[in-house]
């Protein structure tokens, strides 16, 4: 049986799902950020119970954890997504920020980032697409997906995920998973599209 996970760092970054977890490890490395532990809380419905058990975890008070950043996809409504995170924070007895990117003071302090940003619908792939949208392959990506719709009558959804995965399929050494793609350097970490996200991570 693998060893259970333990909290090892006073700074915690909680992300939604395995793909996000695989992305943020190389992303933080590219930023030169160390000392932030990344935790995958699962799906959006799992954040509330995850936080509830997280604050009970053996090392939580012992370290202690001083900073928690939570990243969640906006899905259809970034304001609803932010409210949902706040509700989960409240349920776990944690400080609740007033808006995305704002720090809620306390021990620990908390901060929330909604992907792709606090005003747009979408998900992590939406942000990743912004970083690589200058790539010439995108001419073909959208043409291909349009061709699929014409041929099958079915539109691949979510659209941004379909565009992003199609883009990955165009790389010279195909890495279909976000984490592998990130490590292979396909995601253009130097793009200004990531500036606010980097600012958020540095604030932890």
């Amino acid at each position: 049986m693998p060893k259970p996970r333990v909290i090892q760092s006073p700074k915690q970054l909680l992300v939604e799902g395995r793909d996000a977890e695989a992305f943020f490890h190389p992303f933080l490395e590219s930023m030169g950020v160390s000392g932030v532990q990344i935790q995958n809380y699962g799906g959006i419905d799992e954040l509330a119970p995850f936080l509830k058990q997280f604050v009970l975890s053996p090392q939580y008070r012992h370290l202690p954890v001083v900073s928690i950043g939570i990243i969640r996809d906006a899905e259809r409504n970034p304001q609803d997504a932010f409210r949902s995170v706040c509700s989960a924070l409240r349920g776990a007895g944690l400080p609740v920020p007033s808006k995305p990117l704002a720090l809620a003071a306390g021990l620990p302090q908390t901060c929330v980032y909604i992907l792709p940003d606090e005003e747009s619908q979408g998900m992590i792939e939406t942000l990743l697409l912004r970083a690589v949208s200058d790539d010439p392959a995108f001419e073909c990506v959208d043409e291909y997906l349009e061709c699929v719709v014409q041929a099958t009558g079915v539109e691949p959804r979510p659209r941004d995920k379909a565009r992003f995965l199609t883009f990955l399929a165009s790389r010279p050494n195909i890495k279909p998973l976000t984490g592998y793609a990130a490590r292979a350097g396909y995601l253009n970490f130097s793009s200004p599209a990531y500036d606010r996200l980097k600012e958020f991570i540095r604030s932890l």
Binding site: P2, P4, R5, V6, Q39, N40, Y41, G42, E46, P49, F50, K52, Q53, F54, L56, S57, P58, Q59
Partner: peptide, 16 residues
């Protein structure tokens, strides 16, 4: 840990 917290911890394979 109640049922919800313990279930979440075990699902996330967190130490308890």
């Amino acid at each position: 840990y109640d049922q919800e917290a313990l279930g979440a911890a075990l699902k996330a394979e967190f130490e308890v």
